[in-house]
Amino acid sequence: MSAFLACVLVASAGTLALRLFFLGRDEPVPSPDMLRAAMEHLPVSILSALVFREFILGGPGLTARLFSASVAVLLALTLRKDIVTILGGLLAYWAFTALSPLSP
């Protein structure tokens, strides 16, 4: 077995184990009420961490990304259509970078 194949197999086995730990069980792992209440905040925390990281720390072009995000939030709040939000945000980003000589 090649070193590459061994690495891929170990990495995929480890990743699958992480996925299976909760989702592979027949019954949910029993958890205290307090933990369950805390879990309610998990989706919004995950999404927010991902969004802030991508938009603020996404490399050059911060202003364009913030402009894109602002347009996208406005569209998401008013129209509530994912595809419109995504395309609107992309268009805003493209327009900002194309029209602004200061933005990379």
């Binding site: 309610e40 989706p43 919004v44 999404l47 927010s48 991902l50 969004v51 991508e54 938009f55 996404g58 990304r65 894109s68 995000a69 996208a72 939030v73 998401a76 709040l77 509530r80 994912d82 939000t85 995504i86 945000g89 992309l90 980003y93 493209w94 970078t97 194309a98």
Partner: peptide, 27 residues
């Protein structure tokens, strides 16, 4: 480089975040 498709995934997450935040106003 001019095609900003790398922005699409963050925008998907942003759209979902707005959706989750506005799902239950009581919280």
């Amino acid at each position: 480089e001019s095609v900003p498709l790398r922005m699409a995934v963050p925008l998907v997450f942003l759209s979902l975040l707005v959706s989750v935040l506005s799902a239950s106003p009581s919280k």
